[in-house]
Amino acid sequence: MKPLQGRVWKFGDDIDTDLIIPGRFLVLEPSEIALHVMEGIRPGFAELVGEGDIVVAGDNFGSGSSREMAPRALRKVGIVAVVARSFSRIFFRNSINVGLAPVECPDAHVIEEGQSIRIDFDRGEVVIVETGKRLVAVSLPDELAAIMEAGGMVEFLRTRVNGSQP
């Protein structure tokens, strides 16, 4: 996978999907839902971020509800990756499926808001551009990297619906 580089928005531990996209907005259309992303914890976030930005967080990112609108809304407003110490498993799966890179990085806490980081998937590292500091990133198993590289689950399935089973 190609490296990603972007500006960091920093969050803490246990950011659940109710904070990322509160349930009361789920009745709306996806494009409207995205305007409320992170409203539970940082109102106005959708206006602050730009294409290519990266969310950095602590442990258990994306816990709680299985709502896929959480990673979809982050992607929709421009976030391309979430770098966290650990992920809630459903959010991790959902992110891969919708093309938002989930990057497990045990030392994610040393990254600061506003810094730029480069994620090198092949080398399994996250580099803080300003300081040159290198952090270890856990590589995706091949089976999951195949879904990411296809561009998400829909494209992954498209290559297989007329052929053999995955």
């Binding site: 299985s66 896929e68 459903i90 959902n94 499926n97 998400g152 399935l157 089973q165």
Partner: peptide, 19 residues
């Protein structure tokens, strides 16, 4: 428990990946 697109995969193929 999974999300919508994982369930899409299951509905299409009857299969999913698990760690």
């Amino acid at each position: 428990g999974m999300g919508s697109t994982d369930l899409l995969g299951v509905l299409v193929t009857g299969r999913t990946w698990l760690r």
